[in-house]
Design a protein around this nucleic acid. Structure first.
Lengths: 145, 145
DNA sequence: TTGTTAAATGAAAACTATTATCAATTGTAA
DNA sequence: TTACAATTGATAATAGTTTTCATTTAACAA
């Protein structure tokens, strides 16, 4: 079951937030791509259909959507702020192509054991982790004849 | 065997880079703390003994040291640019306290299997990963009577 | 030592990314 | 439809980082 832009719009409204054309547009744009997008990139795309939107609104909207866990923030190797749709709600991570920026989700990080071990060894109360793989996607990797 | 600031200075020189008082100072400062430090924080500390140093030099030095793998860059949850000494050369990761910023290294991330699996499933040529745990360190976690 | 030279430095300006302010606008629920 | 709080866009402010360039300096050879 894919989360369509429409359903998400409903969720947003449910949580007591207004559904403005600008938010609609941002959601639509993010939902339309599998890549991660920087605020600037989203701004440019949204502007095509929505020439009057301001960059500030993009930032505000991203903060909101992110807070509602509708989109998630990707730490790329260079920039630290890219966003993409949050697929269902399953815990997952990203694999980022360092050349073209393509992002592939994966699940099953199996870090529970490690988390347990670390928690015991360091007495940290662990509440999250960041895991990303970097490499070259099939299109960018050197051809192997 | 700890890498002292002195030894590192030698390495730096070996690689054909000059050993300036500014670089010495930056190294000394990073080596003196176990926490991760932002460029700004390093700047302030270095300035105490070296009032004429410019912030730009800090940035340049950090880029250089980072390139030489003498220091490593930590992605904190908020800022994306903090640096700390690279302990020996072993592959390791960080556990960051979200409250006080304390950083603890850990090794044995055991991601090799996962990497293998992902590599097969996605045809990515994987060449690195970023793994960090977040939580509250013993000093910051709520007291459990 | 001293001289030479490429590398490094600091100051200033330029950029880029992000946030705050505020008056005008608008979605929502009554 | 109205009322009102939430949202928006413009602008300015701020923060973080990079570029430029003239000056200084570490390293090496003589």
């Amino acid at each position: 079951m894919k989360l369509t832009a429409n359903k998400i719009a409903g969720i947003l409204r449910e949580k007591g937030h207004k559904l403005t054309p600008q938010r609609r547009a941002v959601l639509k744009t993010i939902a339309a791509t599998c890549d991660h997008l920087t605020p600037e990139a989203i701004f440019k795309k949204v502007k095509q259909d929505n020439p009057d939107i301001g960059l500030v609104t993009i930032y505000r909207t991203l903060d909101l959507l992110s807070e509602l866990h509708l989109v998630c923030r990707v730490h790329a190797l260079d920039g630290c702020r890219s966003y993409m749709m949050r697929r269902p709600t399953e815990h997952h991570h990203h694999m980022v192509c360092s050349q073209c920026g393509r992002v592939v989700d994966f699940t099953g990080c199996s870090l529970a054991d490690l988390e347990q071990r670390l928690s015991e060894e360091t007495r940290f109360e662990i509440n999250g982790h960041l895991l990303e793989f970097y490499g070259l996607c099939p299109d960018c990797r050197p051809v192997t004849t």
